[in-house]
């Protein structure tokens, strides 16, 4: 098991981050993409808090994490609203269908 330190937490954050990125890259469902975003944000949050705990940065990490949570909530709200509009217009939530801006 070994000693728990900063590295372990960063590993967890990295895994969450990569899962989020892969989720965004593979899910065709808008909601799925949003979930990927949440995962990415959480991965970074883990990092922040871990730095807050294991380095002399103190509360800065936690405060930043708090802001990220708030922003994530806001982003989720707006993203869902956009998703709803998208659904209203396209009658689907497949992001591959929203390619009007392709070259």
């Amino acid at each position: 098991m070994g000693d728990i330190g900063l590295s372990q937490y960063l590993m967890v954050g990295a895994v969450l981050f990569v899962c989020g990125v892969v989720c965004m890259a593979t899910k065709r469902n808008v909601i799925g993409v949003l979930m990927g975003v949440e995962l990415v944000l959480n991965g970074s949050n883990v990092n922040f808090v871990a730095f807050s705990r294991y380095t002399p940065l103190g509360l800065d990490g936690q405060a930043t994490a708090l802001f990220v949570i708030v922003l994530a909530a806001a982003e989720a709200a707006v993203a869902l609203a956009i998703a709803l509009n998208f659904y209203n217009n396209h009658l689907t939530i497949d992001v591959d269908r929203g390619n009007e801006l392709h070259g």
Partner: peptide
Amino acid sequence: LHADFLGAAQLLIYVGGTVVLLVFGVMLTA
């Protein structure tokens, strides 16, 4: 990580708020 307030906020906002919002989104669209 001794971030008690942050943990509480995470639970309240993410688990209690954002995810519920996502589920609502699923319900309205998918």
